[in-house]
Design a protein around this nucleic acid. Structure first.
Lengths: 217, 217
DNA sequence: AAAAGTTATTGACTTTAGATAAGAAAGAAC
DNA sequence: GTTCTTTCTTATCTAAAGTCAATAACTTTT
């Protein structure tokens, strides 16, 4: 079998880089707008806060995080789609899809001492914002209001996960697929079906049959 | 076989009340110890913080929260066991068991405006600490360090839930039962099997068969 | 356009779970 | 103790999911 070639030949790397920078500047402008909605924030505050956040753009298939990595960062998806998966007995078990606006809060118990148990891989061309825990703490010290906001976001996110777990427990694969259709229909067009199957907790063959069953009804 | 007597006969309710108060005082003393491990906390701070927290003791089968309730509180289990369940088509679907030391963070998206979708019911005689969101905010204003601590706890809890969801997705009912045996074995003796079955996402009949299958191996 | 690789579907067969009903075991109430 | 209720197990049958293998549909590469 031939080796898998994933090499993307960048003909002019400087051109490519400058385009990416333009893209990143546009995003920073968006983030500036976002920060400026906070009443107590001066122009200088905004600039300082933005300094602490970095941006990264990845291609389809590239990894943001791998099993065993030591990472103490939080990510937020600006555009694109990131898949979280575990490698169990050589099999990829997908456990979540993050899309625009969603955040990945401090994986690994937020500690640089605990290795990651899972992978974060880009389903498509993706841009994320990144902030290290260190810089986040710095930011919270400077702008305590952000700590409150962060706590609220965390609590909401915790609630989301509690509901997701509850939904997962109380539904069967067919219902889960219908829920996906209802609440995250865009995923069906963005993500290969075998990854969705894994996310729904069934084999690709089963998902194929579930789809057929639904279609026949 | 002789019946197991768990009956606690309360002859005199005033006596009962005074006993409960003693019990609660003992718990407050424990909590005082806990707060006193925070360096920056003076005796007065501890007393003030404790003022904001209330205790409640419930009997087996009593509810802490019902579907439709408007609640803006966080709970922490001091002793006992609380079951979270949803009522779906008249059927109780158990989605979590909280035991000693575990906290129930701000159900209902932490808003007094959103009705609860689930029930919290005591599996056994249970004591919980309760703090309203209002008083929690008051406390955080007075003692900012508690806000940081709370944020960290929330992040850890979020991580726990992410892992629980991932585990649920990547395992089948038999594996989930084995996991329960491994990590929360005490639950098997505290919780009726049909509630565990629901928590594992199967019918009581299936759990019975799973147990038999495992036993025969 | 052809070849190679990846992803999705289908079929045959096995295993496991759901539904229903009946009976056994354990616990609570009398 | 006996009775009543709840909980657990077993049996039968049906429905759905897993496994393995083959093929079809779709993408990417050349």
């Amino acid at each position: 079998m031939l080796p898998k070639k994933k090499v993307v030949i960048v003909k002019d790397s400087s051109e490519h880089n400058s385009k990416r920078l333009e893209h990143h500047e546009a995003i920073k402008a968006e983030m500036r707008k976002c920060f400026s909605t906070i009443d107590s924030f001066s122009e200088k505050d905004i600039a300082e806060a933005l300094e602490l956040i970095s941006l990264k753009t990845l291609k389809k298939g590239e990894h943001l995080l791998r099993e065993g990595d030591f990472s103490a960062r939080s990510y937020s998806i600006i555009s694109g789609c990131v898949r979280q998966y575990y490698l169990v007995d050589g099999e990829e078990k997908t456990t979540f899809f993050y899309t625009e606006g969603q955040s990945i809060f401090a994986p690994n118990g937020a500690s640089e001492r605990i290795p990651s148990k899972y992978y974060l891989s880009c389903v498509e061309h993706t841009t994320v914002s990144i902030i290290s825990l260190e810089k986040q703490n710095e930011m919270f010290k400077k702008f305590p209001i952000l700590e409150s906001m962060s706590r609220n976001t965390l609590r909401e996110e915790l609630n989301n996960y509690q509901e997701m777990l509850a939904t997962y427990i109380t539904t069967n694969p067919e219902e889960r697929y219908l829920n996906l259709l209802k609440f995250r229909a865009e995923l069906l067009n963005r993500v290969p079906q075998y990854q969705l199957a894994s996310y729904l907790g069934v084999t690709p063959e089963s998902l194929s049959r579930i789809r057929k069953r639904i279609f026949l009804k």
